[in-house]
Simulated assay, not measured.
Amino acid sequence: MADQEQAVLKKLRVEPGEKIRLRDRNPRDKSLFGDEQETKAATAALAKDIDTLQDRLYAEGARALLVILQGTDTSGKDGTIRSVFNATGPLGVSVHAFGPPSRLELEHDYLWRVHAAAPRRGTIGIFNRSHYEDVLIGKVHKLAPEKVVEQRYDQINAFEKMLAENGTTILKFMLHISKDEQKERLQERLDDPAKHWKFNPGDLEDREHWDEYQDAYEIMLNRCSTKWAPWHIIPADRKWVRNAAIATIVKATLEEMDPQYPEVSWKPGDFKIT
Rank of each mutant, 00 (worst) to 15 (best):
G122R: 11
P119K: 05
I249L: 14
M257V: 14
Y110D: 12
G76M: 08
G125V: 10
H96P: 02
W210K: 13
D211P: 02
K198F: 00
S94F: 01
H232A: 04
P193E: 15
V93C: 08
G61A: 07
N86Y: 07
S83K: 12
H232T: 14
L53H: 04
L221A: 05
G125M: 11
A116P: 02
R113W: 13
L66Y: 04
L69R: 07
E146W: 03
R63N: 12
Y213A: 01
S178L: 06
G79Y: 00
T43H: 06
F159Q: 03
I81V: 15
K147L: 12
N222E: 10
V264C: 11
R56L: 10
V148C: 03
P90E: 13
Q155P: 00
L136A: 00
K19Y: 00
Q54L: 02
E36F: 04
P201V: 11
V264D: 07
G92N: 11
K267E: 14
F33L: 05
A87H: 15
R103E: 15
T274V: 12
S83P: 05
L204S: 07
L57C: 06
F199L: 06
H96S: 11
H141T: 03
N222R: 07
Y132I: 00
L69M: 01
E146R: 15
P262C: 13
A41H: 12
L66C: 02
L171M: 10
F159C: 09
A216Q: 14
Q214R: 12
Y153D: 10
F98I: 12
N128Y: 01
E36W: 08
R242C: 08
I124S: 06
T123D: 08
A62N: 08
P262L: 14
F127C: 05
K179R: 14
I249G: 11
E256A: 15
K77A: 07
Q151T: 13
R103K: 13
R56K: 15
T168K: 02
T72K: 04
Q182T: 02
V95T: 07
D49M: 09
R242D: 08
P100W: 06
H141M: 15
